[in-house]
Design a binder for these strands. Structure first.
Length: 876
RNA sequence: GCGGGCGUGGCGAAACUGGUAGACGCAAGAGACUUAAAAUCUCUCGGCCUUGGCUGUGCGGGUUCGAUCCCCGCCGCCCGCACCA
């Protein structure tokens, strides 16, 4: 009986319509079953989806469908991270409105995602640029403001004088704006900040509770937060050189133990003391300017020479009033870490040592390795940064580094300078408060009003939303909100006088810092329904790219805490489980050189192989195209493969199955068409096997048939079920795929017997069950195929609403095991024996083996190692 | 520089963290079916020699009855942070 090939173009839309009709994936908040929240990082609507999206959402969908089958009430929503620069760039380049551009992209991409057959609750969909969403974000902002979690301060920013905008550090390339190419200036602007540093310690401590996060990500966050334990030490100014009125200067150090090795103080060019000095001395002024300019170029930092200038100011050593040290302005001291001032101990720090050599400052070794000889220990070109024993340090001599730290801390805390302690213990963090002001149009307006009389006035909640005006122009650089004729002019909510709206919008990272909470009740007037948020959160499984390991995840962790403080929910950590999936990468193709280089999409070329050499030829012109490096799929390099083509020719199931096969999900994959065909063969094979055997399986009981090993079929079915279940639990999709292949390979012969109408009733019944298991374990990956097969075998209802089958322990465990038998560690034979055979029984059986007898040649073995149910090793 | 990870066939990768190395898939080769093609099926497929072995998980040592896995020392690649006091 010839079976028709499975036709995804017919089947997939049919089942998608069916799921939709029956509201299979709508999630109710009042469902009594245990909850499971699975979320993939929502996409930026850049235009079309690419294979990276397919991989991300296929993984999430497997988890969602699997957990649904396991009986959980699954929340699996989708939305759009829709504010951001590309929309404004498109507006400037193509004269389209950011709003129109964004919503059109969303419509396209939504259609593409729907064609993948994802089990999403589309009723909860939103875009962050929806007024309904950003209104609630403004609400949150106001609540944070009230709780003191938001503040304004002057801050240095990278300012592009051509585009009239602030640039993020990564948008400054070699000191120039990435778009305009203009030299970037450092400007002081008043900006809004979120007080993320209020939670530094908690954000650090709680990392330990996130045991379902990759170790790597936790470590990255830990380093980013950057906790260090040290001291603040105040140094009395002995000589001000007529440059400052200050009486003392405070430094931060993690090595107070090395205090007797100090030979200079260094301060940042932005330190108040440096500013005082610069005001009095043009040379210092010039040097400070130079330091600031150098600071803009990120790459230059690496190689930048350590430079300093002696200010002439002198300070007294905290433990010796007669010991004076020079104060330098130095280009390597950062104003925003510690106090912007350090003491230099050249023997214990490589940078300080280089600096000391350059400016002829003393180098006194104060720490030596435990086993070194104090008489001969010296510092050459390399500082000794390790722990050890104190030397040349007066009352600290002989102490360990650790004890010296304690001693100095105790003494300085007790001592006073003026009327304050001379030193205090201080924990310092690298983490900075989060600046959220952006001088851009396409973002969430910051809901405050500036009044000449009342100052900064929050917009009353009743007046929300502060809506973005639609009638804006992009013909000039700068923020369109600034030059809008009317939008910024409003009355002060306090006094009613003319006032001005804040025209800055929020960093788009704010939008993505709480969307996962909004999904729990997107219909709410308030930002959240706390009951719903508390019930659903934390997200049980969050899936996304490693590129968000720090910022997005840290900001979301902060937001959750801030929302807890302001009563919007009552959990601390937003994401219980995190999985970082690998990228989909592809070769790049280009023609032309230098500035004229033009990228070519894979769709426009064909690859030819000649004498082992691969060549790329342009389809239209036949011209040879250069094959470039393998990189992450991106619009700019055009090395994207549009899933539409693959879905159109092979179907969504094949695309899904392929991206889940072969490679571990956390590793990058190189896209290859050959792999797609392999996956498609599997889809067709499952369909053929199931459909060919389906009829005879149903009728087998009525007639006698050939013997078949029904038990073997049941055993592999249940073993596979158990293993695949474990793989899905661990998100090891590639291993699940391999096991399913093995399973299908094992079923092929018995199913052929059945298809020929020769299966015994026992075999037919075992096959019936096995096929049912097969359909349900492939269903999370290839859901349309599963439905089609399910109908073919006469399954009740939909696979999508069927439960997960339970494996039987008795069928999973074998009564007999086959042990490899090694002689001196090399495998020489197999031994099949009862599973519960004891040591002596196994030994006896092993000694009886021909191969063992031959190896022993009549001798007694030295040793026999029996690892139960695993291996036997005979040592001769 | 600091921190982390990885290195297994022609390719993507498995191997229950000390127990048969290379499961499964891709590619390749041979064959069957076919007028032919597609589809499908069967077999081969790390390397070296003659059956049977030997050898093999980046390289060199070590621990162990037994090492892809643990320890020491190299080599190579990738990622993150980067003047953090």
């Amino acid at each position: 009986m010839a079976t028709e090939r499975y036709n995804p173009r017919d089947a997939e839309p049919r089942w998608q319509a069916k799921w939709n009709e029956e509201n299979v994936f709508l999630t109710r908040n009042d469902d009594p079953r245990e909850k499971y929240y699975v979320l993939e990082m929502f996409p930026y609507p850049s235009g079309r989806i690419h294979m990276g999206h397919v991989r991300n959402y296929a993984m999430g969908d497997v988890v969602a469908r699997y957990k649904r089958a396991r009986g959980f009430n699954v929340l699996h929503p989708m939305g759009w991270d829709a504010f951001g620069m590309p929309a404004e760039n498109a507006a400037m380049q193509n004269k389209v409105h950011p709003k129109g551009w964004t919503y059109e992209n969303i419509a396209t991409m939504r259609g593409q995602l729907k064609s993948m057959g994802l089990s999403l609750d589309w009723s909860r969909e939103f875009a962050t640029c929806d007024v309904e969403y950003y209104q609630r974000q403004q609400h949150l902002f106001l609540d944070f403001l009230e709780k003191g979690l938001v503040y304004r301060k002057q801050s240095k920013v990278n300012w592009d004088p051509v585009d009239h905008t602030v640039l993020a550090n990564e948008q400054v390339i070699d000191g120039r704006g990435w778009r305009s190419g203009a030299l970037v200036e450092q400007r002081e602007l008043t900006q809004w900040f979120f007080r993320i540093t209020d939670f530094s310690q908690d954000l650090l401590d709680s990392l330990d509770t996130l045991d379902q996060w990759p170790e790597k990500v936790r470590l990255m966050q830990k380093n980013w937060i950057g906790r260090s334990e040290g001291m603040l030490i105040r140094w009395e100014i002995a000589e001000n050189a007529g440059l400052t009125g200050e009486k003392d200067v405070t430094v931060y150090t993690t090595r107070p133990d090395t205090l007797f090795g100090a030979s200079f103080l260094a301060i940042s060019a932005d330190h108040p003391l440096a500013k005082d000095a610069a005001a009095q001395n043009p040379e210092i002024m010039a040097f400070c300017e130079e330091c600031r300019r150098a600071g803009t170029s990120l790459a230059a930092l690496e190689t930048a020479e350590k430079k300093g200038m002696d200010t002439g100011i002198r300070v007294r050593h905290p433990f010796d009033a007669n010991w004076e040290l020079p104060v330098y302005v130095a280009n390597f001291v950062l104003m925003d870490y510690g106090t912007g001032a350090i003491f230099g101990c050249p023997s214990g720090d490589q940078r300080d040592l280089d600096f000391a050599h350059k400016y002829d400052l003393p180098v006194v070794p104060v720490v030596m390795p435990k086993d070194a000889d104090a008489a001969t220990f010296a510092i050459g070109d390399e500082a000794y940064v390790g722990d050890g024993v104190m030397i040349n340090s007066r009352f600290l001599d002989g102490l360990s580094t650790e004890d010296a730290f304690e001693t100095v801390a105790t003494r300085l805390s007790a001592a006073t300078l003026g009327n304050a302690p001379q030193g205090e213990l201080k924990v310092n963090f690298r983490l900075r408060d989060w600046g959220i002001s952006r001088q851009r149009y396409w973002g969430c307006p910051i809901p405050v009003i500036h009044c000449d009389d009342c100052g900064v006035v929050p917009v009353p909640k009743a007046d929300l939303p502060v809506k973005l005006p639609d009638d804006v122009t992009f013909d000039k650089p700068g923020n369109p909100l600034d030059r809008h004729p009317t939008w910024r002019h409003v009355a002060c909510p306090h006094c009613g006088k003319d006032a001005r709206r804040e025209t800055d919008t929020m960093d788009t990272f704010v939008d993505s810092s709480w969307y996962f909470a909004r999904f729990t009740a997107p219909w709410e007037d308030n930002p959240t329904d706390p009951a719903a948020a508390n019930a659903w959160l934390p997200v049980d499984q969050y899936i996304g790219g490693i590129e968000h390991a720090i910022l997005h995840l840290l900001y979301s962790r902060f937001f959750t805490r801030a929302m807890q403080v302001s009563g919007h929910l009552d959990v601390k950590e937003p994401f219980k489980g995190l999985f970082t999936q690998g990228m989909v990468v592809h070769e790049t193709y280009s023609r032309g050189e230098g500035a004229r280089r033009e990228w070519v999409t894979p769709a426009e070329i064909r690859i030819e192989e000649l004498d082992g050499k691969r060549r790329a030829l342009h389809l239209e012109s036949g011209e040879e195209i250069a094959i470039g490096s393998i990189e992450k799929m991106s619009k700019s390099k055009k090395n994207v493969v549009d899933p539409d083509d693959i879905i159109a020719s092979y179907g969504a199931d094949t695309a899904r199955f392929f991206v889940l096969s072969d490679s571990p999900p956390d590793r990058d994959v190189i896209w290859s068409e050959a792999g797609v065909e392999g996956a498609h063969r599997f889809v067709q094979r499952v369909w053929r096997l199931v459909s060919e055997a389906a009829l005879s399986l149903k009728t087998a009981e009525s007639r006698p048939g050939e013997e078949g090993d029904a038990l073997a079929v049941s055993q592999i079915a249940h073993k596979t079920l158990k293993a695949v279940q474990a793989d899905y639990d661990k998100l090891a999709f590639n291993k699940a795929v391999a096991r399913i292949y093995e399973f299908v390979n094992a079923l092929a012969a018995p199913l052929a017997t059945a298809a020929a109408g020769k299966a015994s009733p026992e075999l037919a019944s075992a096959l019936c069950e096995a096929v049912g298991i097969l359909i349900r374990i492939v269903a999370p990956m290839t859901p349309h195929l599963a439905e089609e097969c399910w109908r073919e075998i006469g399954g009740a209802g939909l696979v999508a609403t069927s439960g997960w089958p339970a494996y039987q322990d008795s069928l999973v465990a074998d009564n007999e095991v086959t042990l490899p038998v090694q002689i001196n560690g090399k495998k020489r034979a197999d031994l099949t024996i009862a599973r519960d055979a004891d040591q002596s029984a196994v030994e006896a059986a092993v000694l009886a083996l021909e191969a063992v007898q031959a190896a022993l040649a009549g001798q007694r073995p030295k040793k026999i190692i029996v690892v139960p149910q695993r291996i036997v090793n005979v040592v001769v």
